[in-house]
Measured scan of single mutants.
Amino acid sequence: NKASVVANQLIPINTALTLIMMKAEVVTPMGIPAEEIPKLVGMQVNRAVPLGTTLMPDKVKNYE
C-alpha cells in the first residue's frame, strides 16, 4: 500500500505548504502520493484542510 499526503495540522485556505504541515500515511481513498511532498512545498491550498485530512489534487492550486 502506498502512502498519501495527510495534513499534520489545520492548513488555512491559501496557505503555502511546508514540510512540517504534511505527513505520509496509508489512507483510503488515496490522495496525492507521499513521494510528491517535496514538489508540494510552496504550493498553496485552495481551501482549508483540517488536521488528519488527506490532501487530494483538487485541494492544491496548480497541482498536476
Score class of each variant (00 low, 15 high):
41 V>P: 01
31 G>L: 02
16 A>D: 10
56 M>Y: 09
1 N>A: 14
7 A>E: 02
43 M>Q: 05
14 N>V: 05
7 A>I: 05
37 I>P: 01
54 T>L: 05
8 N>Q: 11
38 P>L: 10
43 M>L: 11
5 V>R: 01
29 P>A: 06
60 V>C: 04
23 K>L: 09
16 A>G: 08
11 I>L: 03
5 V>E: 02
53 T>G: 13
46 N>T: 14
32 I>S: 04
41 V>L: 09
6 V>R: 00
21 M>A: 06
34 A>P: 02
18 T>G: 07
23 K>M: 08
18 T>A: 09
3 A>K: 11
63 Y>N: 04
45 V>Y: 00
9 Q>R: 11
21 M>H: 08
27 V>D: 01
32 I>M: 04
49 V>L: 10
47 R>I: 15
19 L>H: 08
17 L>P: 07
17 L>G: 05
53 T>W: 09
11 I>K: 01
8 N>I: 07
52 G>R: 00
32 I>P: 03
57 P>S: 05
4 S>K: 01
11 I>E: 00
6 V>I: 12
51 L>N: 13
37 I>Y: 01
46 N>Q: 08
45 V>A: 01
17 L>Q: 00
8 N>Y: 05
4 S>V: 00
18 T>V: 08
37 I>G: 01
45 V>D: 06
51 L>I: 13
25 E>A: 14
33 P>T: 06
61 K>F: 10
50 P>N: 07
57 P>D: 03
57 P>W: 14
18 T>M: 08
6 V>M: 01
30 M>S: 12
21 M>K: 03
5 V>M: 01
38 P>N: 10
48 A>Q: 14
54 T>D: 05
6 V>W: 00
56 M>T: 15
38 P>G: 09
43 M>Y: 10
44 Q>A: 08
55 L>E: 03
64 E>V: 15
6 V>Q: 00
60 V>R: 00
2 K>W: 13
54 T>P: 07
4 S>L: 02
37 I>H: 00
43 M>A: 06
24 A>T: 07
43 M>D: 03
11 I>N: 03
57 P>K: 05
20 I>R: 12
23 K>E: 08
40 L>T: 03
36 E>C: 14
29 P>T: 04
57 P>E: 04
9 Q>W: 06
19 L>S: 09
36 E>P: 01
47 R>W: 10
27 V>Y: 05
51 L>W: 10
43 M>W: 00
39 K>I: 13
45 V>R: 00
18 T>L: 08
12 P>N: 08
45 V>S: 04
10 L>C: 15
38 P>M: 09
60 V>F: 05
30 M>W: 09
30 M>H: 12
36 E>H: 11
64 E>D: 11
5 V>H: 05
16 A>R: 14
57 P>T: 01
5 V>K: 02
27 V>H: 03
42 G>M: 02
37 I>S: 03
9 Q>T: 10
19 L>Y: 11
54 T>E: 04
11 I>H: 01
23 K>D: 08
29 P>Q: 06
14 N>T: 02
5 V>G: 02
41 V>E: 04
63 Y>I: 05
60 V>A: 01
28 T>F: 13
7 A>K: 05
22 M>K: 00
51 L>H: 13
51 L>E: 15
51 L>A: 15
64 E>N: 13
50 P>C: 09
3 A>H: 09
63 Y>C: 05
16 A>N: 11
24 A>P: 10
7 A>C: 06
